[in-house]
Amino acid sequence: MTLIERLKDEQKAAMKAKDKPRLGAIRLAMAAIKQREVDEKITLSDDDVLAVLTKMVKQRRDSAAQYEAAERQDLADAELAEIKVLEEFMPQPLSEDEVVALLDAAIAETGAASMQDMGKLMAVLKPQIQGRADMGKVSQLVKAKLG
């Protein structure tokens, strides 16, 4: 079952259960996916859908942090609830040890030795960890290894 099919099935289940917060989060995800399909005139693969969901989670984390800084916990809680729903459709996150292991394997594969090789290294790493690890933290690890 593709990721879009899972989203559609969960959307129907949320409608039947009258779970408005869950339904709203799933509808937002479906709208973002549809928008990208229309904009690019393509049908998104599971990897593309995962990239959309990852971006949505990142946006919501940023929003929640801003709401908390502005002492609007009610709005932050709404964002965090949406994150929980979206994360159900994403693969299990990698531990830091697993990320380091993948990074070491990618360095061995590409022969990366300096910061100039970071692009090649990230090109190999990104498909393996997309949606499963924070790319900002991965970038920091890469810089530490190559720097």
Rank of each mutant, 00 (worst) to 15 (best):
E79P: 01
Y67I: 04
A31M: 11
V38C: 04
A64H: 02
D117H: 07
D62I: 15
E82Y: 04
V57C: 06
D47P: 03
A81R: 04
K41L: 13
V57D: 05
D117P: 08
S114P: 04
D48V: 08
V99L: 10
T54N: 06
T43Y: 08
A113K: 14
L86T: 03
D77G: 09
L103M: 08
V57F: 06
L102I: 12
T110D: 03
D104R: 11
Q35P: 02
L102N: 07
R72D: 14
K34L: 12
P91H: 02
D74Y: 08
E88L: 04
D62P: 00
E37S: 06
D48G: 10
D48S: 08
Q116P: 10
L28F: 11
M90Q: 02
V99Q: 04
A29Q: 00
A101K: 10
T54E: 03
I107Q: 04
I42D: 09
G111V: 06
A113I: 10
L80E: 06
M90P: 02
E109P: 01
S114E: 13
I33M: 12
I83A: 00
I42T: 15
A64Y: 00
A51N: 07
Y67G: 07
Q92G: 12
L86P: 01
A51F: 02
A51L: 08
K41T: 04
A70F: 12
A51W: 04
L103I: 02
D97F: 00
E68D: 09
D104H: 05
L44Q: 13
A65T: 09
L80A: 12
Q73T: 13
A105Y: 05
D74K: 06
Q35A: 15
P93R: 08
K41S: 15
T110L: 00
I33A: 12
L44G: 11
E82I: 00
A105C: 05
T43H: 14
D104Y: 01
E37Y: 05
L86G: 05
I83P: 00
L75N: 09
Q35S: 15
R61V: 13
D74R: 08
V85S: 03
V99K: 04
T54Q: 08
V57M: 09
D48C: 07
L50A: 02
D39Y: 07
E37M: 07
T43Q: 14
A105I: 03
A112F: 01
T110H: 01
I83M: 06
E37Q: 15
K58I: 14
V100W: 02
Q92C: 10
Q59E: 08
E68T: 07
F89N: 03
E79V: 09
L86H: 06
A78Q: 14
D48K: 11
I33Q: 02
D46I: 05
R36W: 03
A29T: 01
K34Y: 13
E96F: 04
D104V: 07
A69R: 14
D104C: 01
L94I: 03
L75G: 08
I83E: 05
A78C: 10
V52T: 00
M115P: 09
A78N: 12
V52N: 02
D62Q: 08
K34S: 15
Q66E: 10
Q66L: 14
K84Y: 11
I107W: 00
V38Y: 13
R36V: 07
A70L: 10
R61M: 10
A32L: 13
S63Q: 12
D46H: 11
S95Y: 06
